[in-house]
Design a protein around this nucleic acid. Structure first.
Lengths: 330, 330
DNA sequence: TTGAAAGCGCTAACAT
DNA sequence: ATGTTAGCGCTTTCAA
């Protein structure tokens, strides 16, 4: 079922059918309606692949994340994909498994088959991202690179809130369990938490890098204990949950002996016992916003690469993993 | 950077370049190596869109699930996508939001841009799936339709294990909280649980349909209580977690007052307190197997639609949400 | 407002 | 073993 069949059935030229679908104002109203009706009858749908070849636009988007199974991502993927569909785009989802080489290769592979790519929490170096960004429209999420559009979540503010919460509870010695090398979020947290700790007059020890996983948290637990901190801020909920497990193995109870704060506000943190105090990240909104920004970039080919940065607010969700320190540290 | 540039640079015809990439045995070894080297130098990559137009093969796969945010899916999506990439395929991921109309529309939209589609836990009627399956290669997961390839998880066995576990603990009155209308898994569970209950000589009440979500569980809790059952098997972990919340709101404690079993073995169930006893589903294996089956179907254009059904084993993971009944029911 | 024709980048007969 | 040529299904000038 091609455009030719429809043209023949409607008694018009293929170019008229083409216009009926893609430039409806260029064809007489009744012709268009007749063509469309016949097309619907025949079950004709324009072949997107052929369209892509002539127009250079695929109406496909790429969404590259580091780990689909990390509960931080599913809500973002879901929202991005749903919103893209509403806008007439399909999305390729790909997972780098936290591997920088895979990340770059994925981008190159996808490059030709998509109109643009959303990179969530990329681990690639700034210059590499910048260079690739010159070849293909990008929207970054959780990463800021000069000249590229980005959707940022205000994790700096979130980290500050976390420090203030802990300090307000009476904790005088905190530890920050950072994320993987190359993580912009981790760097932001570190800076903001450091500043907030200074403001509050509390001590802050930083432990990094760590894998952004539950296992990463379990492994980091002993080192955290060694610092003597009574309040801990983890890179994300998964790490926080891992830390709590690690502490538990050593007889350290949360929040009795230690307070722990996660980041992301995933289901995992909500289900965990004790329920996790965490910095809420607006992941679904980030997914939608990223798609919106990307489509805008792609469809505004005329105006040059209009880059935009959107910052989404974060907040602190206080639950059961934080409390007043039992043995005020010195 | 097109095939023509490479041809020119290498001093050969475009068809030779084409063959160097896609039918290497048809070109002299040294020519091929020279062409490939020059192509690499120039950063040339075959345009998949153009390829698709001539060959009719896109090297893209569609993966349609009902809810990306349901923790059952991410491991499956991750595995499917990773394995597809190894085999040289990219995957579109789409979410139906449990809406049958969206499901069908998604399939039609994707049809032209992919070589085949993996439908996970589809809610569409058998005849609709059968008809669509005639237009496009399908692999079903968690659903069996005559004439179509499928990857099944032996949830019937899992449900039987759950019933036996509960009966073995001394529960004499069970309830099964089923899933949504159209769910093959739910039907399988119902049948198998019914049979197992009869075998064990215990009573089984069935409550269905229910949304496959935490909220669905919360809402179903009172009805479960009314049955007087002391052991409950839920459609999935999410529903089980919701039930436990609902029970908790009514002062019913798990596993003291009631035993609850989930299905899927998601992180959610593992993190929940009490940690959930659950039927483990091999989701990652299912994702890989589905991709393997689909690619096999697609690449064996000659042999006709060789349909295959693979059944993956399930097992019972006993954790803390099940125990001996406190007040043996009559 | 519509038709004609060229061409997007590539593959696949068909020649040589 | 390599070159020639005709499309794949569509869009988009250019004419009429």
């Amino acid at each position: 079922m091609t455009i030719r069949d429809v043209a023949q059935a409607a008694g018009v030229h293929v170019s008229t059918v083409s216009r009926a679908f893609s430039a409806s104002h260029l064809v007489k109203r009744e012709t268009r309606e007749r063509v469309l009706a016949i097309a619907a009858d025949l079950g004709y749908r324009p072949n997107e692949t052929a369209r892509a070849l002539t127009t250079g636009r695929t109406r496909n988007l790429g969404l590259i994340v580091s780990d689909i199974a990390n509960p931080f991502y599913p809500p973002l993927i879901k929202a991005a994909q749903a919103y893209a569909r509403v806008r007439g785009y399909q999305v390729f989802v790909a997972d780098t498994d936290e591997d920088v080489a895979v990340e770059e290769e994925l981008i190159r592979t996808l490059a030709r088959q998509v109109d643009g790519v959303i990179l969530v929490s990329p681990r690639l170096a700034n210059d590499v991202i910048g260079r690739l960004g010159g070849e293909l429209p990008f929207v970054l999420v959780n990463r800021s690179v000069a000249g590229l559009s980005a959707v940022l979540m205000d994790v700096a503010h979130g980290a500050a809130l976390a420090v203030e919460h802990l300090a307000g509870l009476g904790h005088e010695h905190l530890a920050l369990v950072g994320g993987p090398r190359g993580s912009w979020t981790s760097a932001q947290m570190r800076r903001a938490a450091g500043r907030a700790a200074a403001d509050q007059g509390v001590r802050l020890d930083v432990l990094a890098p760590n894998p952004p996983t539950e296992h990463g948290g379990i492994v980091a637990a002993p080192a955290v204990l060694e610092t003597g901190a009574t309040g801990v801020i983890a890179y994300n909920d998964l790490v926080a949950i891992g830390l709590i497990e690690g502490f538990d193995d050593r007889g350290v109870r949360i929040p009795r002996d230690l307070s722990v704060i996660g980041v992301d506000d995933t289901v995992a943190g909500r289900l965990n016992r004790p329920r996790l105090t965490t910095v809420a990240m607006p992941t679904a909104a980030a997914g939608r916003t990223a798609v919106d920004l990307l489509i805008q970039t792609v469809e505004t080919s005329g105006g040059g690469p209009a880059t935009a940065q959107t910052v989404l607010a974060t907040s602190l969700v206080v639950r059961d993993s934080t409390a007043t320190p039992a043995h005020p540290a010195g």
